[in-house]
Design a protein around this nucleic acid. Structure first.
Lengths: 219, 219
DNA sequence: ACCTGAACACCGTTCAAGT
DNA sequence: ACCTGAACACCGTTCAAGT
């Protein structure tokens, strides 16, 4: 990739040779390619052709890398909803963006869910969703509940999908003792559907129509 | 804990000094106490007072430990629903059990979601949920969709709750530029509610009443 | 039979030194 | 000013050796 015609001539000035964005982009490459298990500071540095310690000039620690990568990856996937859409459209669009992030970068999801932080990379999403909910007429408490429910649903679905992506599910089910697991065994060949895109959309519509019904019951 | 009055006398026979269950129980202690980041084979061995390599006589690898611990921790939390309850009660009870697992062992959730496997520790739960859905009259496809939606929701909510548990959310929100985040800033003091138990129950009822409505529309 | 130390190929991060 | 090697305290797991 970076061919970089050796700038280490006899000239005096060392200027930063990279940017924070390059570091985050390289981190995303590593995550996508090698998975959450193998994702490491040292591999990001390798990807950029720098010493591992140089990273710490651009980034405080590994946690900050995950936060930055999340924001970067979400920006990649976010399409503005046309204004003037109703609250339900806007909410659906935001949740689908979050789901698209999980689809596009499945290896990232485990890292996001493993964070001990508020996932600051997702605050812009939350702000827009909360705005849509309050604008629709939900009281603040219900709006916050719905915010937590919808974001948890999307991340949870993305996380379980990512975990199941690489394995042969029908095979796993058939290994179970059929006597103890009659329903799963019967459905073995169709079992993978339970984490399909259709399943995700089904759950999202359940949530949105539940919210719509709730809103109608308001004074 | 294990006082074990030194059995290494001059007697001939080395018999297994531990069991798989003891290994899994010790692993759960480490996870609960030290968190997913610090959870390691070496620490499990320390907990049991054995060499790290001895673990591999009881367990194939770290992944298998996580699977076994999940099953163990779930058994701890599962209360049988009284038979004769309706499908909705049974489903609610199962999802609440999964949620209780996340509450009781928050550090475990990231490990479960980080697994690249079908989480075999949760197959019994899935079998019961699928049974409840099919028994209610849902067709197989819808039942499978609902299964994926409900388990993803519970794990996702548990995972995001666990990630946010140790941090000062109002503080984090107040660090954001209020001009860019008006809705979150206004709600800063109440923002933590979005991942409360009430929020979880709200979302669960949205899903269950959506399923109920769907079922009524069947021929 | 069961247990384990040394070894291998890794981690994140601090700190002092290099240019 | 910017970059980095050595070092520290860790990982999971293989393999050959101990009792």
């Amino acid at each position: 990739m970076s061919t970089q015609t050796s700038p280490n001539t006899s000239r005096p000035g060392p200027r930063p040779r990279h940017t924070r964005e390059q570091v985050l982009a390289a981190a995303l490459v590593v995550i996508d390619r090698d998975g959450p298990e193998l994702f490491s500071m040292r591999r990001i540095a390798d990807e950029l052709g720098m010493g591992a310690m140089t990273l710490y000039g651009y980034v405080r620690n590994k946690e900050e890398v995950v936060e930055g990568v999340t924001a970067l990856a979400f920006a990649e996937v976010h399409r503005k909803t046309p204004m003037g859409s109703g609250w339900e459209e806007r909410l659906r669009s935001e949740v689908e963006d979050l789901h698209a992030l999980c689809q596009r970068h499945p290896n990232l999801v485990a890292l996001v869910l493993g964070q001990t932080s508020a996932s600051p990379g997702l605050f812009r999403l939350r702000e827009r969703m909360l705005g849509a909910l309050l604008g629709a007429g939900f009281d603040e408490t219900t709006a916050l509940f719905a915010l937590g429910v919808l974001t948890s649903y999307a991340l949870g679905f993305g996380g379980t999908q990512a975990g199941h992506a690489t394995i042969d599910l029908p095979e796993r089910i058939r290994e179970l003792p059929a006597g103890d697991f009659p329903n799963l065994s019967d459905a073995a060949d169709r079992y993978a559907m339970h984490l399909s895109e259709q399943a995700f959309e089904y759950g999202l519509e359940l949530l949105l129509s539940g919210l719509r019904a709730d809103l109608r019951s308001y004074g």
